[in-house]
Design a protein around this nucleic acid. Structure first.
Lengths: 166, 166
DNA sequence: GTTGACCTGTGTCTAGGACACAGGTGTAGG
DNA sequence: CCTACACCTGTGTCCTAGACACAGGTCAAC
C-alpha cells in the first residue's frame, strides 16, 4: 500500500499520511526499487487509531505519547484518561472565551447598524471599532441584565438544534 | 518610547510590539545612535487600535486591510462591517464544532468511568479510544434524544453564568 | 521509444505571536 | 578609567496540524 491507497481508504489526504509518517507515527518500509514508502496492515491500524484519537480532541502530541506507551507494551489507558480530562478542561475554557467573543462580535455588528461610515481623522482610524471598544471599557460588568444572558441562552439553544441537524 | 515602555503602557509583551513592527503595522524611527526603534504618539494610537480590533475578533490580516485603507484616507468602515460579518459567521461555525466536540469528549470521559484499563493487544492500541470511536460509528445520528440536547442546554447556561461572573 | 497522466518525497508556508540568544547599553562600584 | 552586571534590543527560529508547490520518478498506452 502506498500513500495514495492508504489515504483513500481512510478518506484523508495523502498529505496527512505523509505528515504522520514524517513525525514517526507510521513506519512504512522503503521499497528499494523506487524509493516509495510501502504501508502495511499495522500502519493502517495505527492510522485508524490516530484519526480516532484526533477526532476525540487529542493533540498530535497526545497521540504520540499514547502510541509510545502502547509500543512499549504498557497500558496507555491512564495517560488517555488524564490527557482527555486536561483537553476537556481546555476545551471548556476556549468554549467560554469563544462564547464571550461571539457575543461581543454580535453586539458590535448590531450597534454599528445605526452608525454611519466615516473617514479616518487625525485621532481615529476606524470610528466603528474605536467607539465600540471605548464603550466596552466604560460599560461596567456586573450590570449584566438578564436580558443579555437570556439572549445568549436562546441563541445557544438554536445552535444546538442546528448542530443536531447536521 | 522604546518597545519596553510601549508594551508596558498597553499591558502587552514586547514581543507583540515587535511582531506588529515586523509586519509593518507600526513605523518607529530608528535611533541612529544605538539602532533602537523609537515609537511616537501615532504608533501608540495605532497599537491601541490594533489591540481593539484584535479583541473584537478581527484577524491580523483584517487589521492590515483596515489600516491600509485608513492610511490612504479612505473610510475603512465598509471593510470593517463586511469583515466582521464574515468573522462572525466563521466564529459561529467553529462554535458549533467546538460544542459538538466538547459533547463527544464529555461522553467519552463518562463512558470510560465504567471501563477498566487494559494493555495494548495485537488488534487494539488503546481500547478506550477505539471502543468509543467504534461505538460512535454505530450510533446512528437522528436518534438524538432530547435528553442530550437538554444536557447541552443546561451546561451552556451554566457556562454563561460562569462567563458573566468573570 | 515516447508521450502524458499520475504519483512521490522534500521543502516551504500558514497565524499570532513566544522564545532563545548574541550582543549592546547604562549605571554602580572600585 | 575600567569593570561587573542587570537590563534591553533586534533577529532568527519555533509552535499546530497539516496544505501546497514543485522537481523528478513511474507506469501504462501508444
Amino acid at each position: 500500500m502506498r500513500v495514495a491507497e492508504l489515504s483513500e481508504r481512510l478518506a484523508i489526504t495523502p498529505d496527512t499520511v505523509r505528515f504522520y509518517t514524517r513525525i514517526g507515527f507510521l513506519r512504512p518500509r522503503k521499497n528499494p526499487d523506487n524509493g516509495y514508502k510501502e504501508y502495511g496492515a499495522e500502519d493502517l491500524q495505527r492510522l485508524k487509531f490516530i484519526l480516532s484519537a484526533r477526532g476525540l480532541g487529542f493533540s498530535v502530541d497526545d497521540v504520540g505519547q499514547i502510541l509510545r506507551e502502547a509500543d512499549q507494551g504498557k497500558s496507555p489507558c491512564h495517560a488517555t484518561r488524564t490527557l482527555m480530562a486536561t483537553r476537556l478542561r481546555e476545551s471548556e475554557q476556549r468554549f467560554r472565551e469563544m462564547l464571550a467573543l461571539r457575543n461581543k462580535m454580535q453586539a458590535a455588528l448590531t450597534s454599528w447598524e445605526t452608525v454611519p461610515d466615516c473617514p479616518p481623522s487625525g485621532h481615529t482610524i476606524c470610528h466603528l471599532i474605536e467607539a465600540f471598544s471605548e464603550q466596552e471599557w466604560s460599560a461596567e460588568p456586573g450590570l449584566d441584565s438578564s436580558t443579555e444572558m437570556d439572549a445568549m441562552k436562546d441563541e445557544t439553544e438554536a445552535m444546538n438544534k442546528v448542530t443536531s441537524k447536521r
